[in-house]
Design a protein around this nucleic acid. Structure first.
Lengths: 234, 234
DNA sequence: GGTGAAATGTGATTAAAATCAATTTTCGAA
DNA sequence: TTCGAAAATTGATTTTAATCACATTTCACC
């Protein structure tokens, strides 16, 4: 059972996984003609803000943070991409440089699709370009949500909300009743919520004391989603 | 002369105006087959969050704020659309309900294009759908920027930055040396920056005393863009 | 031009979050 | 298993922003 009836998780998720799944074989072949597969260790950079894009990346397995760093070194995570998702297409389609940096959050297997193949596939496949249009316009919903949340909700509320989202993203072979292990550094969590590490630590402690989560080292287990949702004030 | 070499204004601007300009006549005809033109007074709603989209809107003249309201009534402006821009396409393309509300900021003339015509035009015109892809993916750049800014910059910095952006948006028949009149309520300015009205008022006062702007009633005139840019810490 | 509601502006106070300075824990490499 | 660097945590303090309570100004309308 999902929590989508309690919390609109799709408002926090791009839908890039829907791009490739079920695409006609010919289109798949076109896209996959010259792919290369790479292994990324935790913290390895996939692409860097400001560089010229050379292709797109399909995350076969793993998690990638997309983030911007300001001049004081503070990171803001724009989006956390999961297994099955694609990244790097914005820059190619907008004909700009990468607007942000992508780095693996954990050991990840990623397929690289060269620019030419991707653009050609779009050129030839109406299905593909229509799916991209649908997906990209959905991103507006996600961002409108993020912006409103960042602007008007407290750090505590935002952290509660993100934990609910992360619980979904860290589900793997999930069975009802299982605890989901959220394995993310405090710094990354801070970058996701948009605050300093210290605040994250303190509020996590509150959540623990209020019986919403348990922690084991850096790992976080959500033990009461409903209470968390309440705390998020959503 | 523009300030784009000092400040990347395009990172604050969607590029929806580029959609229609220069589109082949046949595509234009397709799109414009069943349009209706409407006049909106200040504060009139163009469409409302949560409703089913029935078409898109081309702003012939005027300005429209796109915003979300939280349960305490606080508005967050997601984007300020200007003359020549289109709004309402996200919901149609993503097949969702409107993710935000649109309301005229000033007397505006807006052309309505019905859903069917818009979707048909995309279906038939490769040029149009490719332009949409380009535009939508550029929006990611804008939002990544907004999110990072909201998360890590002070209200003072954000206000300074927005004033620079607004100065561009309120340019009309601009001649070098002219002062641009920014005519926006303090509440809307607060909604754009993501803070409370009182903070806006206080910081505007600082900016006035520091010789960056002048005010006349609600109207704001930027008198020193460079100082503002410095204050924005960009 | 006068009038009143709405918008703008001011001051004081409270609350939230950022920052600074350590200390403790964790976890991978030797 | 031990060691040491990196990460996480805690506490104290400062800064920033939100909130509350009014005062003043503006501006559309009569």
């Amino acid at each position: 059972m999902s929590i989508s009836h309690l919390f609109p998780i799709d408002k926090w998720d791009f839908k890039t996984h829907s791009i490739l799944t079920g695409l006609p074989p010919e289109e798949i072949n076109l896209l996959m003609a010259h792919t290369t597969v790479h292994q990324y260790a935790r913290n390895d950079t996939v692409f860097r803000e400001g560089t010229v894009p050379s292709g797109i990346f399909f995350i076969r397995n793993g998690k990638v943070k997309k983030y911007k760093t300001d001049k004081f070194g503070r990171e803001q995570i724009i989006y956390l991409a999961n297994t099955g998702e694609i990244i790097g297409y914005h820059a190619l389609l907008s004909e700009e440089r990468y607007p942000d940096t992508a780095a693996a959050l954990e050991e990840s297997t990623i397929t690289f699709i060269p620019k030419e193949d991707f653009l050609q596939a779009i050129e030839r496949s109406k299905v593909l370009s229509q799916r991209l249009l649908k997906m990209l316009s959905h991103e507006y919903t996600v961002f409108a949500n993020s912006v409103a949340t960042l602007a008007h909700r407290s750090v505590r509320e935002r952290l509660a909300m993100q934990l609910v989202v992360l619980r979904e993203k860290y589900k793997e072979n999930y069975q009802p009743g299982m605890l989901v292990e959220i394995n993310l550094s405090r710094d990354d969590l801070a970058g996701l919520v948009g605050t300093a590490r210290e605040n994250i630590v303190r509020i996590l402690k509150e959540f623990r004391e209020e019986g919403m989560i348990e922690t084991k080292g850096r790992k976080i287990f959500v033990t009461d989603v409903h209470k968390l949702l309440q705390a998020s004030n959503y």
